[in-house]
Design a protein around this nucleic acid. Sequence first.
DNA 1: CAGTGGTCTAGACCACCAA
DNA 2: TGGTGGTCTAGACCACTGC
Lengths: 258, 258
Amino acid sequence: MTTHSAPAVEESNGTRGPAFAPLYLQIKSLILNAFQSGEWKPGEPIPSEMELANRYRVSQGTVRKAIDELAAENLVIRRQGKGTFVATHSAQHVRFRFLRLAPDAPAEDGSMGPASRTIIEFKRTRTTAELARQLHLRSSDSVFHVRRVLGFAGKPTILEDLWLPANAFKGLSAEQLNTDRGPMYALFETKFGVRMVRAEERLRAVLPTEEQAQTLQLPMGTPLLQVERLAYTYHDQPMEVRQGLYLTEHHHYRNELN
Amino acid sequence: MTTHSAPAVEESNGTRGPAFAPLYLQIKSLILNAFQSGEWKPGEPIPSEMELANRYRVSQGTVRKAIDELAAENLVIRRQGKGTFVATHSAQHVRFRFLRLAPDAPAEDGSMGPASRTIIEFKRTRTTAELARQLHLRSSDSVFHVRRVLGFAGKPTILEDLWLPANAFKGLSAEQLNTDRGPMYALFETKFGVRMVRAEERLRAVLPTEEQAQTLQLPMGTPLLQVERLAYTYHDQPMEVRQGLYLTEHHHYRNELN
DNA sequence: CAGTGGTCTAGACCACCAA
DNA sequence: TGGTGGTCTAGACCACTGC
């Protein structure tokens, strides 16, 4: 603490983004740190703009611009008159935000989720070279591997494999996954403090192997949409690899180009 | 013109967005009108923020917020020290912005475009009921129908059908499409003043018909990625229906989830 | 009513670009 | 050097929420 005119920002914090970034980006980075450290948890309100402005010794406008960006990236939700809240996968209106498969005929009850979910495999294994590369792991690290089938209206529709770094998901169990209702990403948030923020997907049309066809109860030769996903948490840290096979007879993958 | 304190906004303009929208949204709407009317064309600079502030009788900050949104929607490009420019599909770095198919192995020369393009059908027909619904046409209106094949590295990879409202594309010819280099959407801009701004896509895995397989020189039973697109110009006006069949043996459709 | 985010203004200074 | 967009500030007022 120097004596004259407080230094703006500073938070007795070693890692503070690029040294000479604009003030509002430094503020944004500090807020993200608070998210990652769990100081403000998903679903909870963050301090008001005025409070943050005082804390960081900047004007309200600068805090506002930082929060503007966080809101644009869906990391935060603003509600006029109430406050600003850390975004969560548990909130009703953003559930299945990352599941882009939609029924061709819109469901009666409005939004939909999988009607059935069955874990058909759960194990902890050593990382493969490919996984290590994608998840930034060392070859000695281990991962959880989950395989599950999602069904809509009684019909198996998605066969999904996913891999998670064991270090970040200590204690994950098949029991836990089976018991839980609601999106898997909501479970990750509440039980492991891991919030998925962004993902990249690669899509292809493929034919199922015999095993895959049996699992999905489909004839061989049925074309399936293969979706490879790499999901990231705060600060662009990769935290999940997922590969899905989607049956697109009565569903489609929707996308917006901007 | 009243005498006291100029009224802010107003542009002797009947259609001006929602009546009681915030000022900056009204400004944004006025700017969009200028785009649509062709007052400021793709690639050209728009007036400086100060000029616009004076013209619309608002502060620079309000104009700035309007332009912020336009920039976020990729309708405008800002360049510090130079000005703000109407976005264009002709610009080198945004070419093929709407083509999400990428080679599995990154190309040597960096960015890629189709190596070959062949128009295999071009005709003017009456609108179908489905097309009329999607393009907001009357059943008496007619459309252009184009079918083409795109190839990469000598291999046919995309079979694409597209439909355009004939009214908006008066004079479009197969000749024109064959002669032109560069993205089709750039041609639409320069020749017809139609700028595509946004699109919705629906993806499915399908098997080709016999005719489609022959056209793409593929064996029957090859799974293909079917991409249905509805593309919009300014003010959310639908202007193109497109259906593509993508061969995803050596390419993938990339997507970002936020 | 007090507290929150949302809008709007006016003005200062900076970083970048072209002539 | 002058003009452009980019950042930052300070302050006013509005709209919405909950007590």
